[in-house]
Write a protein that binds this DNA or RNA. Structure first.
Length: 309
DNA sequence: CTCATACGGAAACTTACCTCA
DNA sequence: GCTGAGGTAAGTTTCCGTATG
């Protein structure tokens, strides 16, 4: 709790001071508060959430995220990147953050944290919540300007993508290095990887779904064919026993080339077999289908593939 | 060793902004 | 200019594993 305590202390204060060195260890305050205190706070949180989204009442928050979720050096980086929402010293990698907007959302999270801390601390919570206006997160910054959404540059995205290909998760060190490299906050890198993993999984799920769909279609077609074949065989059985039926089953076979059931023995392709066996042949379906069918079902079809009609 | 608690990471879900047709 | 859909950054909730007393 020590880290949390530190970051929790507060808002504007926290950010300027510590945290810098406590990188990624402090984790999200909300997380911790979230998880543990018997999740009691969850209920409360839900209630408070909407309210927490307002930062109007905490203009000082715009200084930056005291903890920036991760707390830590993120802030450090953040400070570099977004100099209090006023300066324009955004470097190469940061052209898209146009205003304090990006900061505003963080300030919100700060307020959230504070509220939660209070929850942990005791009862003040309700009071605080009541005070917080119900405004949506980051809708406006402290200046009342509409919040702009941070957009990663192509360069940043490319580097992140490259790293993601190497490893889909980051350890704190990697995260920090990447953040420094891209001039982002560690939290942003972390979030990007989270979302990237989610997208990957989603795409994988979609493709799996497609595959299963195709499989299903194929099996449906196969099933229909088999049903049809079965029907045909049944109807044939219903009719007076034809000549080929009188031939012992063990002597029946399917010619791979002409796809007919051939009666008689294996040497039907012989000299004397001038198509005589075809007098008792029956056409049934496609070649591949049947062969695979018999194969897959381990049908002991007494047919030598080498034999021809 | 077991149990309760705290903490952190990640997934899942949700929200809000932005872009584009 | 307006609008709806899709993409995506970021916030929230939940779960799980691990450490510690």
């Amino acid at each position: 709790m020590s880290f949390h305590d530190t970051s929790n202390t507060g808002l504007g204060l926290g950010l300027g001071l510590g945290l810098v060195s406590f990188h990624d260890q402090s984790g999200n305050c909300m997380k911790s508060t979230n998880n543990d205190p018997m999740r009691e706070s969850h209920k409360i949180k839900k209630v408070e959430n909407p309210s927490s989204k307002c930062n109007n009442t905490y203009p000082s928050l715009t200084l930056g995220p005291p903890d920036d979720d991760d707390g830590d050096d993120d802030d450090e980086v953040n400070n570099n990147n977004q100099p209090s929402s006023k300066t324009e010293s955004y470097e190469y990698f940061r052209p898209q953050v146009s205003s304090p907007s990006a900061v505003s959302s963080f300030s919100n999270s700060s307020s959230i944290k504070r509220e939660r801390d209070q929850v942990l601390g005791g009862e003040e919570f309700e009071v605080v919540v009541e005070k917080v206006p119900t405004r949506v997160v980051g809708d406006v910054d402290e200046d009342g300007n509409p919040r702009k959404k941070l957009r990663l540059t192509k360069e940043q995205a490319a580097v992140l993508e490259e790293n993601f290909r190497e490893h889909s998760t980051l350890n704190p060190k990697q995260k920090q290095e990447l953040a420094m490299k891209l001039n982002l906050r560690a939290r942003q890198v972390e979030v990007w990887f989270q979302n990237r993993r989610a997208r990957t999984k989603l795409k994988q799920t979609e493709s799996d779904c497609e595959l299963l769909k195709k499989c299903c279609d194929t099996l449906t077609v196969e099933n229909k064919k088999l049903q049809k074949e079965l029907q045909e065989l049944k109807s044939m059985q219903a009719t007076p026993v034809p000549l080929y039926m009188q031939i012992p089953a063990a002597t029946l076979s399917i010619c791979p080339s002409c796809e007919r059931i051939c009666g008689g023995n294996e040497n039907n392709g012989d000299n004397n077999n001038n198509g005589s066996s075809h007098t008792t042949t029956l056409l049934i379906g496609s070649k591949t289908h049947h062969h695979s069918f018999y194969k897959s079902n381990n049908y002991p079809f007494p047919h030598s593939s080498s034999a021809a009609c």
